[in-house]
Design a protein around this nucleic acid. Structure first.
Lengths: 207, 207
DNA sequence: TAGATTGTTAATCGATTAACAATC
DNA sequence: TAGATTGTTAATCGATTAACAATC
């Protein structure tokens, strides 16, 4: 669908635009300037980002909110439901099971895994925890295409290998370590240490 | 200290370099090429990033690991300890209290806050939860310069205002909403929804 | 000295911003 | 029509990559 190669930052902004207009009610029409103000960017940037995917606005008018919302949802692949598995049911894994950013129609947590025998068979938020060795089998059975790694750093690579075997297309990695995956699999690292450390850098300069 | 304006991505990579060489043992000397291989970038990028801050290597040799580690720690402001407060002791907040990326010498969680009376006075991982109204007072008493927001979206702005009043210099926001803070305060959004949605975009294209 | 690798400059690439003709 | 705002092109800005003299 995209007409040129789309920068990743553009995709990230689309997600942000979508959230901004979700919270919107009433107004039928929105200009690129108004949307820009909502998310803290420029009108040109908004139009440029959207232009990668087509023409969604009306010159002289703006964008019909309902239509724009639907278009962005479609672009982002949010008009169907993704099956998700969470691996590593420690504090963070358990927290993500209920985190509102995760628990939404578009994303359905369909399996949870851990290595620790004492956690197996326990039910967390309606999902029964299974042993990591079952990952490949369960993933294909339940059409799970996204894996979330919340294990300690030491297990992350091993888990990534199992997820790959299970046929996931994308991995969200919270373990504080770089892992390698086959190039067909999209890997996103959420590196909380790094976030804190860059914060430290910028604060450091202030003293 | 920096000789020119430093791009944020450079600071992020420094954090990644640091973690890579932390896990290293034995070898006394490391070349930019070796470090690049460890983190998946180029040798030139490594040298460029470091060059913003000084000359840490020896031409013809490479970088002394121990020295490099110390220099990067210093650049990132990790040679002292930052006081942290976590606001919103739901699943995610409680998880971060023990997350290894957070629980480290350089970062010390010194306070936890919630609005829910039923949580107040309870002790989580050795930290007594206090009412959010005490934020300004407690923050200045305990030298807390970083605030972490793990509340629902609806309370995030209110909490940010209280953190600002308490004199934090940086905020890490996990609430799925954009908040605004005085410009002296450095704001980092960790947007898990957005991460999942961009993953969805790239997977969508594969079908 | 010869070989290796740094620090840095110049060339390239890509994303953002500015500007405006086209269009409602 | 006049006014407003889009979609898009050109200009600018900034980051990455290539290349090499300086240096151990």
């Amino acid at each position: 669908m995209p007409r040129f190669k789309v920068p990743e930052v553009t995709v990230e902004r689309l997600s942000i635009y979508l959230r901004a207009i979700k919270n919107l009610e009433g107004d039928e029409i929105l200009s690129s300037q108004e949307l820009a103000d909502l998310v803290g960017t420029s009108d040109g940037q908004v139009r440029k980002d959207l232009a990668y995917f087509g023409e969604f606005g009306v010159p002289g008018q703006g964008y019909r909110i309902a239509k724009l919302k639907q278009e962005i949802r479609h672009i982002l692949g949010l008009d169907s439901t993704w099956g998700i598995a969470i691996v590593g049911i420690g504090n963070l894994g358990a927290a993500l099971l209920t985190y509102p950013g995760f628990k939404r129609e578009e994303f359905e947590i369909r399996a949870a895994f851990d290595r620790d025998e004492s956690k197996i068979e326990k039910v967390w938020r309606g999902i029964k925890v299974q042993h990591v060795d079952k990952i490949p089998k369960v993933l294909s059975e339940r059409q799970i295409k996204i894996g979330v790694i919340t294990t300690p750093a030491t297990s992350a690579q091993e888990v990534a290998d199992k997820l790959a075997k299970g046929g996931v297309k994308g991995i969200l990695n919270f373990a504080p370590v770089r892992i390698s995956v086959p190039k067909e699999i999209r890997l996103k690292n959420v590196d909380l240490s790094m976030q804190l450390e860059t914060l430290s850098y910028f604060l450091r300069k202030l003293t």
